[in-house]
Simulated scan of single mutants.
Amino acid sequence: MTTKTILQPDTQIGLVQIRVSNLERSLTFYQNVVGLSVLRQTGREVEMTADGQNVLLILREIENARVIRPNSVAGLYHFAILVPDRPSLGLVVRNLISSGIEVGQGDHLVSEALYIQDPDNNGIEIYRDRPKSEWKYNAEGHVMMSTDPVDVDGLLAASEGLSWNGLPAGTVIGHVHFHVGNLNKAKAFYVDLLGFELTANYGSAAMFISAGGYHHHIGLNVWAGQGAPAAPADTVGIDYFTLILTNEEERNAVVERVRQAGYAVTEVNGDPTFQDPWNIGIRLVLER
């Protein structure tokens, strides 16, 4: 009997690179509304940061980019920015209110989350986690999550008297969430091949997976429809995300499994890069 290979518990999401149609417009949004700052710009690409050192988001402008109907193709549903504590999320609420942007929200039991869309309809979640000691599990050992109303008044109270200076140091990309064309195929790739573990399953509509017992590093859903095609390359959306692995041995093992499964692996700046079945890029980087 073969033992399933799983990712090391310290595995994390690193950064996300997305395609946008108008770089200047997106820069204004991500600085003023989201609270990121520019770290460096190269041509039509901009690296954005919360702490002035670590890149969380790269914006890449593409010419004549198409914005297609939401929930119509496989690809980005949202990327999720994790702030370090509840007062920080309270400040995010205050800034979003002052911006006048439409905001969705959900208390997921393990976290409190706010949802917005950028000018190209790229989905963004900004959230804070509850302590893991407060998470609950069902009989299958899966993390119990829900979508209840967020205590907005409590968030505002938690940030009373504090000043908004953008997203604070300690902010990271907590997870990514994708539309896919088939959950079984997604599970075969992300769980059986890459080594994530299933943490929650919502019938035949969505699943959540992680490394190290986190509630989820990746969400996968078929809300764009069974058999949803990959997003065309000339549309806005996600280029790739990075997986931060802890050592070279594990990275080599993941690369070997991916190659053996028939996926093409290239190197970008020394980091192995490949695509999932819906052309979502994944880059394996080492903890730095």
Results as ranks from 00 to 15, higher is better:
Gly213Glu: 01
Pro229Cys: 02
Asn201Cys: 15
Trp223Arg: 00
Gly225Ile: 05
Ser210Gly: 11
Val254Ser: 06
Glu197Ser: 15
Arg251Met: 08
Ala206Asp: 09
Ser210Asp: 14
Gln226Asn: 15
Phe208Gly: 11
Leu193Arg: 03
Gln226Ile: 12
Gly213Phe: 02
Ile244His: 05
Glu249Arg: 09
Ile238Lys: 06
Thr246Lys: 12
Gln226Pro: 09
Arg251Asp: 00
Tyr240Leu: 13
Tyr202Phe: 15
Asn247Ala: 07
Thr246Arg: 14
Ala253Ile: 07
Thr246Pro: 14
Tyr240Arg: 15
Gly225Cys: 09
Glu249Ala: 11
Tyr214Ala: 02
Tyr202Trp: 14
Gln226Trp: 13
Thr246Ala: 14
Tyr190Thr: 01
Ile218Cys: 03
Ala211Asn: 08
Asn201Leu: 14
Ser210Lys: 07
Asn201Gly: 12
Gln226Asp: 12
Gly237Lys: 02
Gly237Trp: 00
Ala206Tyr: 10
Val222Leu: 06
Ala228Leu: 05
Tyr202Asp: 14
Val254Met: 08
Pro232His: 04
Tyr190Asn: 04
Ala211Asp: 06
Tyr202Thr: 11
Pro229Gly: 04
Ala228Glu: 01
Val222His: 07
Gly227Arg: 08
Val236Trp: 03
Tyr214Asn: 03
Ala228Ser: 11
His215Tyr: 01
His216Phe: 02
Gly203Trp: 05
Ala224Pro: 11
Pro229Phe: 00
Gly203His: 10
Ile209Ser: 05
Phe208Gln: 09
Ala206Met: 08
Val255Gly: 04
Phe189Cys: 06
Asp192His: 07
Phe196Val: 00
His215Ser: 07
Ser204Trp: 09
Gly203Leu: 13
Leu198Ala: 06
Gly227Tyr: 02
Pro229Thr: 01
Asp234Met: 02
Gly195Ser: 11
Ile209Glu: 04
His215Asn: 07
Val254Ile: 13
Phe189His: 07
His215Glu: 01
Phe189Gln: 08
Thr246Ser: 15
Ile218Glu: 02
Gly195Phe: 01
Asp239Arg: 15
Val236Glu: 08
Leu245His: 02
Pro229Leu: 03
Ala230Arg: 11
Gly203Met: 13
Ala230Trp: 08
Ala205Phe: 13
Glu248Arg: 03
Ala200Trp: 12
Leu245Asn: 02
Ala228Thr: 05
Leu243Phe: 01
Glu249Lys: 10
Gly203Glu: 10
Phe196Gly: 03
Thr246Phe: 06
Thr199Met: 13
Thr242Asn: 11
Gly219Trp: 07
Gly237Tyr: 00
Asn247Glu: 04
Leu243Asn: 04
Leu220Trp: 09
Phe208Ala: 07
Asp192Val: 04
Gly227Asn: 05
Gly195Tyr: 02
Pro232Trp: 05
Met207Asp: 10
Ala230Ile: 05
Thr235Leu: 00
Phe208Tyr: 12
Gly225Val: 06
Gly237Phe: 00
Leu198Phe: 03
Ala224Trp: 09
Leu245Lys: 05
Pro229Arg: 09
Ala206Lys: 08
Val222Ile: 13
Leu194Glu: 00
Ile244Pro: 11
Val222Ser: 11
Ser204Ile: 15
Thr246Cys: 10
Leu243Ile: 07
Pro232Leu: 10
Asp239Cys: 14
Phe241Ala: 04
Gly227Ser: 06
Asn221Cys: 07
Gly212Val: 03
Glu197Ala: 11
